[in-house]
Design a protein around this nucleic acid. Structure first.
Lengths: 215, 215
DNA sequence: CACGCTATTGGATGTGCGACCAATAGACAA
DNA sequence: TTGTCTATTGGTCGCACATCCAATAGCGTG
């Protein structure tokens, strides 16, 4: 039984180790929350001594900020993949909206909620939140512009519509830690409704929102 | 100079002391955040030894939950005063919306954000958040029902409209810790627009939303 | 194979926290 | 005034954390 303890130290090159650390921290952030990103916790996850994390990130807050950026950035890339650029905007938007429901997106809602709150006390994180917010806004704006150019729908001001959509998603996601059973469909579908209304699309074009947990 | 130290102990009756503690904690929650509610911090504020807070609230989380309930409840009473019950619903709603802007409400937005996130880890707080949420929803629903009964506007389902309104307010408030200068009026006014649209009121009936920070 | 660079360790230090408890001293009744 | 009840004190304890640093040992180079 020598598997539990392994005084064998593995030596990696700095970039790889650093990337590994950030990836681990990002995973913790999504699954358990940003305040669970601790030197000890990350070190344990990587089977390494805490001092090592401290070596790569002398100030803990910096790791938290980096982890959030990685997690949120990765999720955006997942929600609006560049690979889909050739698809019709309506279809991409429908997919996006579809994914903003269900337990998968709950994790992300929780992360945003977490980051938005914690950024009150952590300037470095706050800066990252602002940056990610801009990225999400711009990605959605670009999608809408594509649709307008392709004549799929009209939008007087895609930038504004994008923000409005994100505001509604934030509002819906704000309750990710709360009881939400029995939410009326007219609430669950607010994002769909807003998009269809603002873009002048017939109701249902973007797909129907999932029914909330029935009964 | 004996003003700095005062080994004089003041003895109050339990209910008064307890109320005093909760009020102090609620103030801290609004101004600095729920995580700043600590035995030591509250004690210092009241010029009392930490052990005393511990005596009234053997478990710290309980005080945090209580403080949130008091703060949120108080703000609701402020936003939708019972004293206004005689006024037309349209007017009460306009006032409510007007107050959901400006730095005053920012403090409250931050509190809700704070509580929604923290409730992920603290069951007692979570329970309070749920309760306050129900109170806010019901108060707003009652207001809408009043308006319908009085024939001021129509609303097929006041309950749903109330939730939708709160979702939008949550979405707008989610950025209370973030940069928000330069927000377009079409975003700032989302709550007004939603209410007027859902209630079939002419645009502008509920007052115009504040312009965001100019320039 | 031996050497030097540096990634990694192991430990120490200090802080702030909740929780716990015996001793103390106000306030009120007798 | 005296006595009793209990609100309040003044500590202690253990825990988790970030931060810092000298010593160590992997690994590539020569």
């Amino acid at each position: 039984m020598s598997s539990s303890v392994q005084p064998k130290r593995v030596r990696k090159n700095p970039e790889a180790r650093r990337a590994e650390i950030v990836a681990t921290a990002a995973r913790i952030a999504l699954a358990e929350g940003l305040e669970c990103i601790t030197m000890r916790r990350v070190a344990e996850e990587l089977d390494v001594r805490p001092g090592l994390i401290s070596h790569y990130f002398p100030v803990a807050e910096e790791l938290v900020a980096e982890a959030f950026g990685t997690a949120a950035g990765g999720e955006l890339a997942d929600l609006l993949p560049d690979a889909d650029a050739a698809l019709p905007a309506v279809r991409r938007l429908a997919r996006f909206l579809e994914r903003t429901e269900g337990p998968r997106y709950d994790e992300l809602s929780r992360l945003w909620l977490n980051a938005r709150h914690l950024s009150r006390f952590r300037p470095a994180l706050r800066e990252r939140v602002d940056r990610q917010e801009a990225l999400w806004r711009d990605a959605l704006t670009a999608l809408l512009r594509d649709g307008v150019e392709a004549g799929e729908f009209r939008a007087p001001d895609p930038h504004v519509t994008a923000i409005q959509l994100l505001v509604v998603l934030d509002g819906l996601g704000a309750h990710a830690n709360t009881e939400r059973t029995g939410r009326p469909a007219a609430v669950t579908g607010m994002a769909h409704a807003l998009a269809e209304r603002e873009l002048g699309l017939p109701a249902g074009t973007l797909g129907t929102p999932h029914r909330p947990h029935h009964r």
